[in-house]
């Protein structure tokens, strides 16, 4: 995992930045056109128009290279779920509002419903299935179980990945750090207090218990 590299081809990298100004500024500043076009091509040659039919797409998922024939409109989420098929990654909203579809792209937490599969080529994609190696759970996964940070479990893959991404960057997060890092992931069952505990526990920090059982007779 390389935590600090930019996530994707559609993030604001050199090529898309140059292409962005290319469309407006280039038209008026004609003197610059040639130089600008050279710069764009140096940054990366633009691919030819693709689709609408299926095109070859090659993805590296959990360290394994897989080849697909996908329409360019197919999201990374759908490519994972229906063409791989790795169903641990969940679709809940399909519009960047819940985080259930989270995966790591080059170590960075990314909503896979907001990324086209063709744009994920050339990057390392890690899904929830790729965390445990040889059946050995990661400390984050184990802490989720120990702290009961999962109920129905539908948000869990995204939450585990969000926590994993946080700890890769910040091995001793505070409660506020965890709140910030996981606030792009929703849970309808209400596991949040336990996710906070799990993140602290996985990073080797003390967890405060917030349940008291009062046994018979101890209350007047």
């Amino acid at each position: 995992m390389k935590p600090k590299t930019p996530a994707s081809a559609s993030a604001l990298d050199r090529r898309s930045f140059l292409k962005g100004i290319g469309t407006s500024a280039v038209a008026v500043a004609s003197v610059q056109v040639g130089a600008m076009a050279d710069e764009i091509n140096k940054a990366a040659p633009a691919p030819a128009l693709q689709g609408p039919g299926a095109v070859p797409v090659s993805l590296t998922i959990n360290g394994e290279k897989k080849d697909f024939q996908l329409e360019p409109r197919v999201t990374l989420l759908d490519a994972l779920r229906y063409f791989s098929p790795l169903t641990g990654t969940k679709e809940v909203c399909d519009r960047a509002t819940c985080g259930a579809c989270s995966v790591l792209i080059d170590g960075k937490l990314t909503y896979s419903c907001m990324k086209l599969a063709i744009d994920a080529q050339g990057h390392e994609i890690t899904t929830i299935e790729g965390l445990a190696k040889d059946g050995q759970l990661t400390p984050v996964q184990q802490a989720f179980i120990d702290c009961d940070a999962l109920m129905c479990g539908f948000c869990t893959p995204g939450m585990v990945l969000a926590t994993t991404a946080l700890l890769a960057e910040n091995p001793k997060p505070t409660v506020d750090d965890v709140k910030r890092a996981c606030s792009g992931n929703l849970c309808r069952c209400g596991t949040y207090p336990h996710i906070l505990n799990a993140a602290l526990k996985a990073s080797g920090q003390a967890v405060t218990e917030t349940v008291t059982v009062i046994h018979h007779g101890s209350v007047a």
Binding site: T87, T127, E129, I145, D148, G153, V160
Partner: peptide, 18 residues
């Protein structure tokens, strides 16, 4: 702890939707 914890944290739990 939940019996199905490992299945849920590894993504191997199969929901109707999966």
């Amino acid at each position: 702890t939940r019996l199905d914890g490992p299945a849920k944290v590894t993504g191997s739990a199969k929901y109707s939707y999966d």
